[in-house]
Design a protein around this nucleic acid. Structure first.
Lengths: 165, 165
DNA sequence: TAACACCTTAACCTTGACGGCAGGGTTAAG
DNA sequence: CTTAACCCTGCCGTCAAGGTTAAGGTGTTA
């Protein structure tokens, strides 16, 4: 146990928004990606530039952590490229913005348009996922059919064994 | 229309096995990958070295075409790396071999072991697919829930519009 | 036999997605 | 004020998955 256990680093002025920010090392540890990768994602626009401490240290929020986890899922489980993911993330951003603006938006037609946009974006995402789901299901069916074939073979062997006794 | 429509290229000696072999250009065209990619896959062990014409031209079978298509699916739709895919392809190979050996295998216990091996390999593949299916389904559910939220918002707007009339 | 489409290997180039320093600043503790 | 633990910005390296010539051989057709 070292004598330095990093804590929430209280900024002196501005007592607002001290929601337990995380430094890059914490985030790296919690998400399992390297610091380099976090900076890289930021550079590539996958993570919005986080707030900084006076000295320049990045301060991430829990939301950022969730986003990183989302990115990892999209990447490793589903094989999206970072460019793809950036699009999705941006879509997500747009949706967040819509939510935020929703209440205080003057024109009803404007609201309607924004929601329509969000729906469109989301539906495209669903369509992509559906395509992948379909392909995966097909492969799975194929493999399971093979498994039943193997099962049949084993049964045949059993019958033979029985017949020999 | 050029004056050369490539045909099955009849080798002079050896009239056997003239099953309509395909040259690399054909295969590339039919599968949508480049010739370079086909050679690359061969180099990486994803495609077995095809038979060659005397002069060295590669001659692919329809089976090879199918395999290339499978590789593409695994890669683009599911985001497996070529290394992953190579493993799967090799597993497939093993299973083919098992099928071939199945009939003329002396010991019943040997057969049983081989089938068990095949089952094991196949089940691992299914497990991987299940994991991805799960992740995808979860994402889809999440997105669809959002869609219903948006739907609700639109309804609210409608109500307001009606109320104003 | 020439012409032309098609193929061969070999070598280098590119892009995406990071890994790994070097050289130097920042923060908290003693 | 020093020190230890963190963090910063470059900048170069690497690995995967091919793309892109270059230089030359093969196969069919005229």
């Amino acid at each position: 146990m070292t004598h330095k256990q990093r804590a929430a680093a209280a900024p002196e002025a501005e007592p607002r928004t001290d929601d337990a920010y995380l430094q890059i090392g914490e985030v790296a540890e919690r998400t399992g990606v390297t610091q380099r990768t976090l900076r890289f994602y930021e550079e590539k626009g996958l993570l919005k530039p986080p707030t900084r401490l006076e000295g320049g240290f990045r301060l991430y929020s829990e939301d950022d952590v969730r986003r990183v986890e989302q990115i990892k899922r999209l990447q490793t489980l589903l094989g999206f490229t970072l460019a793809d993911i950036k699009e999705m993330v941006e879509a997500e951003e747009v949706k967040m913005q819509i939510r935020a603006e929703y209440r205080r938006d003057a024109e009803v037609s404007d609201r309607r348009a924004k929601i329509a946009k969000a729906v469109e974006v989301t539906e495209r995402q669903v369509a992509v996922i559906d395509q992948k789901l379909g392909a995966l299901q097909e492969m799975k069916d194929h493999l399971e059919q093979k498994l039943t074939t193997y099962g049949g073979w084993l049964e045949q062997l059993d019958e033979k064994a029985v017949a020999r006794v």
